[in-house]
Simulated assay, not measured.
Amino acid sequence: MTDLKHFGKTLVIAPHPDDEVLGCGGTIARLADAGQAVIAAIMTKGQEPAYSRAFVEQVAGEAVTAHKILGTTELRHLDLPAAALDTLPAAQINAHFSDLICEIQPDTLFVPFIGDIHLDHQLSFLGALVAARPRSLTAPKRIYAYETLSETNWFSPGITPAFVPNVFIDISATLDRKLEAFSAFQSQVKAFPDERSLIAIESLARVRGASVFRGAAEAFMLVREIG
């Protein structure tokens, strides 16, 4: 198992709190264990009246706890409107991503998958890719799209983009931390057979791992890599 040090500074884009844990929590923990800088950026925040202030504060606190468990170097909140990114001009969304990526200058970038059913996920993918265009030597050297349970698999196979992973990262040693981190999101954990149950999350990791003869893995689609 490689130490992932070649990933360098890593930025993980999360449309909402918990997406990054579902998609690459085990990888975040592995990078942290390798001494790599990992910054997680949560793009949106619930706005009243759709989300109560108490609920928003609860979720923000849960995210802090989850990232302490994973060992994330830094957690950022951009506070764009949750479930309403489509109400903002594209130029405004892209500017937030451009400022973020320009400031951090990550070597590796993780983004949600363009085929996710949630518009916030789709727009986060597009905004991140616009910001990460290889127009300078500081552009991210590698970009991966991750899968999110109950988002990536809920669109229409054969009609909308399909998640067909071609990169697998072994999380056998960090799966327990991923599950513990998601457990911190008490507002989001559901009972099985809901997909956002601990059983479902572990099951997906085991299936992804078994497909490459590992105990557990997270799967990604490589968007671009610059050698």
Rank of each mutant, 00 (worst) to 15 (best):
D3R: 15
L4A: 09
G8C: 13
K9D: 00
K9C: 00
A14W: 00
H16P: 07
D18S: 09
D19M: 02
L22P: 10
C24S: 05
C24R: 00
G26T: 13
T27L: 03
I28S: 00
R30W: 13
L31I: 03
D33L: 10
A40H: 03
T44M: 06
K45V: 04
K45A: 06
G46Y: 02
G46S: 09
G46L: 07
E48M: 01
A50T: 02
S52K: 10
R53I: 12
R53G: 07
A54Q: 04
F55G: 12
F55T: 06
Q58G: 01
G61R: 07
A63R: 05
A63M: 08
H67L: 00
T72G: 06
E74L: 04
L75D: 10
L75M: 05
D79M: 08
P81F: 00
A84G: 14
T87V: 02
T87C: 08
L88V: 11
Q92M: 13
I93N: 06
N94Y: 12
F97L: 08
D99V: 10
D99C: 04
D99A: 15
I101W: 08
I104M: 11
P106Y: 00
L109C: 00
F113L: 11
D116V: 01
I117P: 08
I117L: 06
L123Y: 08
S124Y: 01
S124G: 11
F125T: 08
R133D: 13
R135A: 09
R135Q: 11
L137M: 08
P140W: 04
K141A: 13
K141T: 04
I143L: 11
W154G: 02
W154P: 03
S156N: 07
P161L: 00
P161S: 03
V167R: 12
I169S: 00
D170F: 09
I171V: 15
S172I: 13
T174K: 06
T174Y: 12
D176G: 15
D176L: 11
R177T: 09
R177S: 09
Q188C: 10
K190T: 05
F192D: 13
F192S: 14
D194R: 02
R196E: 09
I199P: 06
I201P: 12
E202I: 15
R206G: 01
R208W: 12
A210L: 07
V212E: 09
A216F: 05
E218M: 07
E218T: 04
E225L: 02
E225Y: 05
I226P: 09
